[in-house]
Amino acid sequence: MGLFKFLKEKFGKKKEEQSVEASKEQKSLDKYDKGLEKSRKNFSNKLEELTKRYKEVNDDYFSDLEEILIEADCGVNFTLKIIEDLLDYSNEKDIKDPKAINESLVDRMFLNYVKEGSNIKNELSFENLPEVLVMVGVNGVGKTTTIAKLAKRYISKGKKVLLVAADTFRAGAKEQLTVWAGRLGIDIVSGNDNEDPASVAYKGVSKGLADKADLIIVDTAGRLQNKKNLMDELKKVSKVINKLINREPECFLVIDATTGQNGVLQAAAFKELINVTGIVITKMDGTSKGGIILAIREELGIPVRFIGLGEGFDDLEEFDLDKYLYGLCSGLIKDE
């Protein structure tokens, strides 16, 4: 079954149902719809335009297609390969209808995602308590804000959450997290300026263990992935926590959706060093691109677990591929 049909069947009819579950689903779907508005305009609306402009696909069509993909930050290699495959497909099967080509394009783009995505649990499991989550990422991606949003999410699920401010480098970082802890009414452990982050993490997790917290979220300083000494520091943080809880902590890499091809390098570098268990994509609402989601999955196989679809406290959604695709392609789907 083509992806379009699948999505249409899954989401197209939901509106008649009235149950609480269903209305919650619809609300979440609406968030995706709104958060991905810009991306949709850039991606599916452009594809749609293309099908209107061309009766039959030809070289110009494929070159336009290439432009759309690259402009969505899908990555050069990824794009060139997919275009080549489509060309072969078009020639072999003698398919010249732009709509059919586009459908095949979307199928191809998300094939790997669909194949591997079914058994991934986005939510933290809380199988072993306390759950410890380390947040990492380059500078300015929104780590601290995301922590606040995640904390809120789990507080409202009745969990006892503790924040640990292990960003002892950037001016104002611990103050920023302290403000959030205050607003959320939860405890925070923070270190002194320039204190070894591993020692702050140690103190924080120890307190969490003593206080019987359900979830301990550790904030770390932003670091560019090519700064080896800073990356090693992260390894130490992870090691210290490992010693305290006798297992690897969860570790989310936060990536800004407006990042270009460097996003893949970021994910690769962090993954090489520490056990990154998930990715959080932030600022998705602000960009018309976000092809980086595809590129990362394609090259590294780290699942995206949460996605920031707006600036509000509740706009951090669990990543749901089907909803994401629906939000991205709904224009194309409704058109059928």
């Binding site: 690259i70 969505a72 800004d256 270009g260 460097n262 960009t287 980086i292």
Partner: peptide, 12 residues
């Protein structure tokens, strides 16, 4: 602007 910015940087 961020040196890591992608294609969208032009629009911004």
């Amino acid at each position: 602007t961020d040196a890591m910015a992608g294609q969208d940087s032009v629009n911004v």
